[in-house]
């Protein structure tokens, strides 16, 4: 596919307890604005981030469950077809960290092993960085692909974290669809016997 540009769409969930800065994080990542004009924020279903990745034009759709954290069963309507996820917590609020495994479990029990990154947000409010060893252990234990200390407010590592997840999304996509990136054969499709009546008929014959 040399010279050609592939286009990919990935749906990324952004979950975590209320007030840990999910919406700010997305705003920062997508617009580089900490606090965004409300006109655009109300009534938007997801935020779109366009990234060029090698010869692929990637569009990341970030879905925010903002405000519905306590309806976590209902937020599953957002889960459908997600390719990746971010679980966000607030480093200054232990309660939001305690809830991380629950969010991860919720993702795992509804989606098929999608790459999930742990986002330790509001690190600008922290005097000392989080203990790396503990965090690594935590990630391994709960099946996160990695973790990032970020600050949506100060725009610290927001981009890095997104890139990291994106890298995994692309990697997984290539594993699952080996044909797509080394596309040497022509795509094929079949047009016959796709009429439902015909299908039903053949079934009757064979049953």
């Amino acid at each position: 596919m040399e010279g050609e540009t592939e286009e990919r769409d990935y749906k990324v969930l952004v979950v975590g307890e209320g007030g840990c800065g999910k919406t700010s994080y997305i705003n920062q990542y997508v617009n580089h604005i900490f606090s965004k004009a409300y006109k655009a924020t109300v009534g938007v279903d997801f935020a779109l981030k366009q990234v060029q990745w090698e010869n692929t034009r990637v569009r990341l759709a970030l879905w925010d469950i903002a405000g519905q954290e306590r309806f976590n069963h209902m937020t599953r309507v957002y889960y459908k077809g997600a390719h990746g996820a971010m679980v966000v917590f607030d480093v200054t609020k232990d309660k939001t960290f305690q809830a991380v495994p629950r969010w991860k479990k919720d993702i795992d029990s509804n989606l098929d092993n999608i790459p999930t990154v742990l986002v330790a947000n509001k690190c600008d409010l922290l005097d000392n960085p989080l203990d790396t060893e503990t965090m690594e252990k935590f990630c391994a234990q709960h099946g996160f692909i990695g973790w990032y200390e970020t600050s949506a407010k100060e725009n610290i590592r927001v981009e890095d974290c997104g890139t990291f997840l994106l890298e995994h999304l692309v990697k997984r996509d290539r594993e699952l669809n080996p044909g797509k990136y080394t596309n040497t054969e022509k795509t094929v499709s079949l047009t016959q016997a796709s009429d439902p009546r015909l299908a039903a008929k053949t079934c009757n014959n064979s049953c």
Partner: peptide
């Protein structure tokens, strides 16, 4: 949940 979502966005 959607009403709460809108208010969360307004809170930005």
């Amino acid at each position: 949940g959607l009403i709460l979502r809108d208010f969360t966005f307004l809170g930005e």
